[in-house]
Nucleic acid binder design. Structure first.
Lengths: 123, 123
DNA sequence: CACTAATATAAACAAATACTTATATTAAGA
DNA sequence: TCTTAATATAAGTATTTGTTTATATTAGTG
């Protein structure tokens, strides 16, 4: 399953939120998710499997219990894709945008001459 | 459609990549996506509709053409959700991490004494 | 106005997937 | 070893959704 499809399901996103503070046993996840979404243990277990196999969660055994934790691999991959668009709302990091930002800052430093307004850069 | 489901489709993700450099006519998108994925104009048009209605793209008309652009709303929303986990792989932003970062900056200002190298901060 | 170009929409269908119930696995405890 | 606890897996089903073909819309052109 593709990483973006993994996050497409609200139950799986919620499970990741539950795991965020620290590891959690399958049973505890079943309780919370069961209460919130009204689905069975089997369904939750299948979601946990998806999270495991797609790099969003890891498990360790402790007796019969399975303790799940967040695996950053999947989340980082998603973040990396989004990151290619981040300069759209955070132009600071872009080289060109740095120049633009400097241009925008000029009016602040320049003495007020004749109401420059928007028509700077008249060639 | 939920924002994460929007990104779950590889065609829609690719369309957003195509729009990233700047606006693009529907027809151009159809050409590229059609070549890459082998789907029809109708299919692409429906994907564009999804992107529109979910806040990932905007359109403006120019004669019969529809020029699509990236809308950051959707992407920001996704980024915000991911952001809640970012401290897993970028602990810098954390309050505690800020202090650590300040500590790391010290050697830059401090005069070179005895080949500081990596072992500063020996308490 | 008839025709073409560019795009969107409708209807129908097939594949994917999130669920269910039922059962299997694995470990601890009497 | 029998039983219980905790979790996973199997099989079946219904819903969702991405696609296609066919048609509708909207704007320019002869």
């Amino acid at each position: 399953m593709q990483i973006f499809e993994v996050l497409a399901d609200p139950v799986r996103r919620r499970i990741l939120e539950l795991l965020a503070p620290g590891e959690m046993a399958s049973g505890e996840v079943v309780e919370v998710i069961g209460a919130e979404f009204g689905i069975t243990q089997a369904a939750v277990s299948q979601h946990l499997k998806v999270l495991r196999e797609s790099g969003f969660a890891t498990v360790r055994a402790e007796a019969q219990r399975r303790l799940y934790s967040v695996d950053v691999a999947g989340l980082r991959a998603v973040d990396a894709w989004i990151g290619r668009f981040r300069n759209f709302w955070e132009p600071k990091l872009d080289a060109l945008a740095t120049e633009i930002a400097r241009g925008k800052r000029e009016p602040r430093n320049a003495p007020i001459t004749k109401r420059g307004g928007k028509r700077a850069r008249v060639r």
